[in-house]
Amino acid sequence: MSAAGSSTESARRVAVITGASSGIGAAAAYALAQAGWDVVLGARRLERLQEVAEATGGRAIALDVTDQASVDNFASQIERADLLVNNAGGAKGLERFLDTDMEHWEWMYNTNVLGTVRMTKALLPKLRASGDGLIINIGSKAGLDPYENGSGYNAAKFGLKALTRVLRIEEIADGHPVRVTEIDPGRVATDFSLVRFDGDQKRADAVYADKLNLSAADIAEAIRWVASLPPHMNIDTMNIMPRDQA
């Protein structure tokens, strides 16, 4: 039997997914629900989130990972958590370092790094209590290879990589059963660039035009596979790119 557990309703395992209103988060909700997980979905865009929840048989709860009160309210409504997918994140702007927009940097760090910290701290006791809990942090190729004009997002995703590694080391040292995985996608055609460019559709489309792109479903399949593994296995990192990206 896979790590998704028993087919009986009382034993159905619970996956919590942040940033689940679109893109990789929404695709992960579909993939995990089809694999037999109960899904609890969090995002700021509640109307879109509710559509995903309705389609997956999941539960939608408003969530802003940059707001501690929102995280606390979200976590208080969850009785059980076997899997946490820290997917909420994103980039703002594409400026050179000397032209840094500090508000962009603060948003990226608060969302990608501190948002992951808030969610993990809030749900870690429940993940430990599950007996074989799993945390999957969605990183980025930007956390592996810096690129020109990407210093703010690079710094945030490098920070996420560090905290992911430290968390795994500390869970092992403290004798807890929680596994920790980081999945680092390369170029995935989602709303990512639309957010980065403040809704400039033409500029966002140019990022993916005439290229071989991954889909959100591709990354969701990786999430589903990692979550299906038996509890004695931990996938440390997965670096996933389209064939023409290196």
Score class of each variant (00 low, 15 high):
L229T: 11
I135M: 01
A206N: 05
M108F: 13
L163M: 15
D244C: 05
E47A: 14
D82A: 09
L84P: 02
A15D: 12
D198V: 04
G90K: 13
W105C: 14
G93K: 08
G186F: 10
G36F: 00
W225I: 12
R165D: 14
A162R: 08
I136D: 00
G23S: 10
T111S: 15
N234Y: 01
L84K: 02
A31Y: 04
L98R: 14
Q245M: 15
I17E: 02
L194Q: 10
V71W: 04
G19F: 08
L160K: 03
M102G: 00
L49C: 04
T181I: 01
E79A: 11
E106Y: 07
L214H: 08
V71M: 03
A11L: 14
V188E: 03
D191I: 00
D198L: 09
L167K: 07
E47L: 03
S215A: 12
A35Y: 02
A31R: 05
D244T: 13
M102S: 04
E9Y: 13
A155N: 08
A217F: 09
R224H: 04
H104Q: 06
K92G: 09
T116C: 11
D72P: 09
H104M: 01
R179C: 05
S151P: 11
G131R: 01
D236A: 15
A43S: 14
L144G: 03
S70H: 06
Y30M: 09
L83P: 06
K141Q: 11
A28K: 03
L124Q: 00
T164N: 10
D218I: 06
G199P: 05
V195G: 07
L229Q: 02
M233Y: 01
E148A: 05
T56Y: 12
A227R: 06
M233W: 00
I135Q: 00
T111P: 13
K126E: 01
N73H: 14
D99C: 14
Q77Y: 09
W37V: 04
R80T: 12
P177H: 01
A206E: 15
K141F: 13
M233G: 00
R128T: 00
T100C: 14
G139L: 03
S21G: 07
D145H: 08
I235C: 06
A11S: 10
S22W: 03
N87H: 12
L134W: 00
L167C: 10
W225S: 07
W107F: 15
L160R: 04
T56E: 08
N234G: 08
G19D: 09
M108S: 07
R203F: 05
P242N: 06
Y208W: 05
K161V: 12
V180N: 00
T190V: 13
G58S: 10
V40R: 08
S10H: 09
P185F: 10
L114N: 06
E47M: 01
E103F: 02
P125D: 02
I17Q: 03
Q245T: 09
